[in-house]
């Protein structure tokens, strides 16, 4: 059958694309829209490296079909910094050395941003459970948690 024609908003911009039914949103982002910041670690929703928000809701883009997102709003890591200014989370991740290899970093940042939008002052435990779907094999999570806590504090101060 013919490909699906889909129109959506990605990082504030209108986009349209064609996709097969079995192509995931992650496939579309990476292969069709060339937004390779979202990473494929497992394709089963177990690692969180492909995290994006869909109408503001945090999801794994590997668990969403491309053809499902017609008319919807998607935010990816590429849309996180505003102009030349890094998001406070991005800045704190750098300052706290919260990344080593960096493959999981986009997913952690997108997930952390979704957390702080809902809960500006999360406890360490809340952060850890919110981010439990984001695997990191390098850092032992310690510096990631610190960076999120620090960013939350900075964002509360405005």
């Amino acid at each position: 059958m013919a490909k699906h024609h889909v129109e959506a908003i990605v990082n504030g911009d209108p986009v349209e694309f064609l996709c097969e039914t079995e192509e995931t949103l992650l496939d579309v982002l990476r292969d069709t829209l060339h937004l390779t910041g979202s990473k494929e670690g497992c394709s089963s929703g177990d690692c969180g490296a492909c995290s994006v928000t869909l109408d503001g809701r945090l999801v794994c883009s590997c668990l969403v079909l491309g053809c499902e997102v017609g008319g919807r709003t998607i935010e990816t890591i590429e849309g996180m910094a505003k102009g030349e200014t890094l998001h406070p989370l991005q800045q704190r991740f750098l300052e706290h050395a919260a990344l080593q290899c960096g493959i999981c970093t986009p997913g952690f940042l997108v997930a952390s941003k979704a957390l702080l939008e809902r809960n500006p002052n999360p406890t360490e435990t809340e952060i850890r459970y919110w981010l439990a779907g984001n695997l990191c094999r390098c850092t032992g999570y310690d510096k990631i948690i610190t960076a999120v806590q620090d960013a939350a504090g900075a964002m509360r101060k405005g």
Binding site: L54, R57, V59, A132
Partner: peptide, 9 residues
């Protein structure tokens, strides 16, 4: 059921 991300779906 699953992670925060999975909860979203």
């Amino acid at each position: 059921i699953g992670s925060t991300q999975v909860q979203g779906r």
